[in-house]
Write a protein that binds this DNA or RNA. Structure first.
Lengths: 208, 208
DNA sequence: ATGGCTATTATACGCTTGAATAATAGGGAC
DNA sequence: GTCCCTATTATTCAAGCGTATAATAGCCAT
């Protein structure tokens, strides 16, 4: 008796809540501090429920990682407009919130640190990385073609590797020490750098 | 009786062994798997000894992080020769072993993921990052001056942020998926990218 | 050689962990 | 309404955690 009352949630909703709670805990307390009990507390349920939705805590964490990768990727992949606009937006999206914030990099780093330990996470990571880079590579191919500098796959690959590195590196810098930079400074540096790398302007221009 | 025989090590040596064992365990099993017992096993001692050298496991981990930062930084900071050579070496060192390998990034990520959790680690990180970037910034200032393009602190800062991001990003890419790149490919891409960013050649030339 | 200091081992303790189980409450079908 | 299914709570368990304490072995000074 005196048992706590509760809301009986639809499966998808509850799973989503649990995954979000998992990510909250990992970002706030680290992988070590993200215990089943802490996660359940955050999700507003009791610990036993986790095992009703996931076969193990590890599986729940892996699914949470998929969610992180997806959220970091999807925003950047959905840019629209002409090639120059898409390229600019791609850069800006990745270097401003919500993609660039301390929660994101905490999660990213927590999972990266497990890539050597857990082959499941390693595979999730590799898939996400290649997908991300391929989006960028296609974007660069379009942009170069539209600006009278069509490039073969090999050249695009090298550009994609370099610009991906640049954007990722600036993303890390911004996430970890955003206060060391002025508002919009990283985006501005990234834009100028990409222009220098490609040897082409990507600024918005009235050339219609 | 029947107590295990042991070697009575000098303090510095034993501390160093314990810290190395800590790093080995973190890189192989993650922060979660780096337990006092596992670390002691790796170091060839029993668990109790840890507390003889460190006031807590957390303190030992923090010192281990300092060691990581130092090893990632010192090699890059000790480049010698004329400015162009130093710049080239700086890039090459950071993108080849032993700085660029999967163990390094596992350790780096494990600690980064704790920056939000543990203020001590956060401070260690920030100090290391700024030191690293300042080395690069000084290096760029020298290089630009030596090539007839002297630049003020603000311009050097922007270049340092961009190139630091580029090198860090390529470092991450290489550490996590070295097999996706050809031998020396990342270094080659980095060299070409830095030349494009600065608008100056950094290749070895016979211009004496 | 031997006495004394301490680095090291060995063992135990209290706590937290992920997981398993049993009891119960929510809510749709009828 | 009442029955039935199952999502959820409550409780328990063994294992592993970091730490504390006491016994002991290595080794230097004498």
């Amino acid at each position: 008796m005196n048992r706590r009352s509760f809301y009986r949630a639809p499966e998808g909703e509850r799973r989503h809540e649990l995954i979000e709670a998992t990510l909250d805990c990992i970002s706030e307390f680290g992988l070590k501090g993200a215990t089943v009990r802490q996660i359940a507390l955050r999700a507003g349920v009791t610990a036993g429920l986790v095992r009703h939705y996931f076969v193990s805590k590890d599986q729940m964490v892996a699914e949470a990682y998929r969610a992180v990768i997806a959220s970091l990727t999807e925003k950047a992949a959905n840019v629209e407009g002409d090639p120059a606009t898409r390229l600019r937006d791609f850069i800006a999206i990745n270097l401003t919130e919500p993609v660039a914030d301390s929660r994101s990099i905490s999660l990213w780093a927590a999972f990266i640190s497990q890539v050597r330990v857990d082959p499941v996470l390693a595979e999730i990571h590799r898939d996400g990385y290649l997908a991300f880079r391929n989006v960028l590579q296609a974007l660069l191919a379009d942009f170069l073609a539209a600006n009278g500098r069509p490039a073969g796959p090999e050249e695009c690959r090298r550009y994609a590797i370099a610009i991906n590195g640049l954007v990722d590196g600036l993303w890390v810098e911004g996430c970890l020490a955003g206060d060391l930079f002025r508002e919009g400074e990283l985006v501005s540096i990234a834009m100028a750098s990409v222009e220098a790398l490609l040897g082409l302007p990507i600024k918005k221009t009235e050339n219609k």
